[in-house]
Computed example of a mutant assay.
Amino acid sequence: MDIIEAPAVVTKAARPYLGIRVVTPFKGMFAVRDELMKELYAYGDGILLFRLHVVDMAGPMDIEVGLLPDHPAGPGPVAAGPAEDRGRVRAGVRPAGRYATMTYVNHGRRAHGMLIDWIRAADLEPDVTETPAGDRFGCRYEAYLTDPRTERMKTRWQIELAIRLAD
Rank of each mutant, 00 (worst) to 15 (best):
I4N: 04
I4Y: 02
E5I: 11
E5N: 08
P7Q: 07
V10M: 02
T11M: 03
T11E: 08
K12L: 06
K12N: 05
A13C: 02
R15H: 13
Y17I: 12
Y17V: 13
G19L: 04
G19R: 11
V23P: 03
T24Y: 08
P25E: 09
P25G: 09
F26L: 13
M29I: 11
F30L: 15
F30N: 15
A31N: 13
A31K: 14
R33Y: 10
Y41K: 10
A42M: 05
L48R: 11
L49F: 03
R51C: 09
L52T: 15
H53N: 15
V54D: 05
D56Y: 04
M57F: 06
M57S: 09
P60N: 15
M61P: 11
M61V: 15
D62K: 11
I63G: 08
V65S: 08
G66I: 10
G66W: 04
L68Y: 03
L68F: 04
P69E: 06
P69L: 07
P69F: 02
P69A: 09
D70K: 07
D70E: 14
P72N: 11
G74V: 12
G76L: 10
G76N: 12
P77M: 14
P82L: 08
E84I: 15
E84W: 03
R86Y: 05
V89P: 12
R90H: 08
A91M: 04
R94T: 10
R94A: 12
P95L: 13
A96Y: 09
G97F: 06
Y99K: 10
Y99W: 03
Y99M: 06
T101S: 09
H107V: 05
G108Q: 03
A111I: 01
A111E: 05
A111V: 01
H112G: 05
G113A: 06
M114H: 04
I116F: 01
D117M: 06
R120T: 00
R120Y: 00
R120E: 00
R120G: 00
A121Y: 01
D123Y: 02
L124C: 03
T129Q: 07
T129K: 08
T129N: 00
E130D: 14
E130A: 06
P132S: 03
A133N: 05
D135W: 05
R136Y: 02
G138L: 10
Y141T: 03
E142N: 11
E142M: 06
E142P: 08
A143F: 04
A143E: 13
D147T: 08
R149D: 00
E151R: 09
R152F: 00
M153F: 04
K154W: 05
T155V: 07
R156I: 06
Q158E: 14
L161N: 02
A166L: 13
A166W: 03
D167H: 10
D167V: 13
